[in-house]
């Protein structure tokens, strides 16, 4: 392709070699369900728009290709909530420290229901 590759979005990979495609469905992790639920709520209430989420995900740049889907969407949501002044970095860090201290998040893949089913 001729022309400059500058400003090509990290998500704009149409025509590139995809390499091997991993088609194994691993289900959703505990945190992915939680994060996806939060994203659904703020999107449903038009606090953030899908267009903004896409833009914020693309703004991850080189990180974009290294992350899994829910990591991208969650980092995009985090960036937008901070950008819109709904939370601050400090509040987020404090809340995460508080939760980490009082609650040992279970590994869903180790639950009796999931164990033995996947992977």
């Amino acid at each position: 392709m001729s022309g400059t590759a500058s400003n090509r979005s990290a998500a704009d990979i149409g025509g590139d070699d995809a390499g091997p495609v991993d088609t194994l469905d691993r289900g959703m992790k505990f945190w992915e369900r939680q994060a996806n639920a939060l994203r659904s709520v703020v999107q449903r209430n038009q606090i953030v728009l899908v267009d903004e989420l896409r833009r914020a995900a693309e703004d991850l740049g080189d990180l974009y290709a290294k992350l899994e889907y829910f990591e991208r969407t969650t980092l995009a949501l985090r960036a937008l909530l901070i950008e819109k002044g709904l939370v601050t970095e400090e509040e987020l860090a404090a809340r995460m420290a508080e939760i980490r201290a009082r609650f040992d998040v279970p590994d869903e893949m180790e639950s009796p229901i999931k164990k033995g089913k996947s992977r």
């Binding site: 392709m1 022309g3 500058s6 400003n7 267009d51």
Partner: peptide, 17 residues
């Protein structure tokens, strides 16, 4: 358009031009 502006764009790179 063969244009490559920065930011969120809805026209894939490969179709430009």
């Amino acid at each position: 358009k063969r244009s490559f502006p920065p930011g969120h764009r809805r026209t894939p790179y490969y179709i430009r031009g």
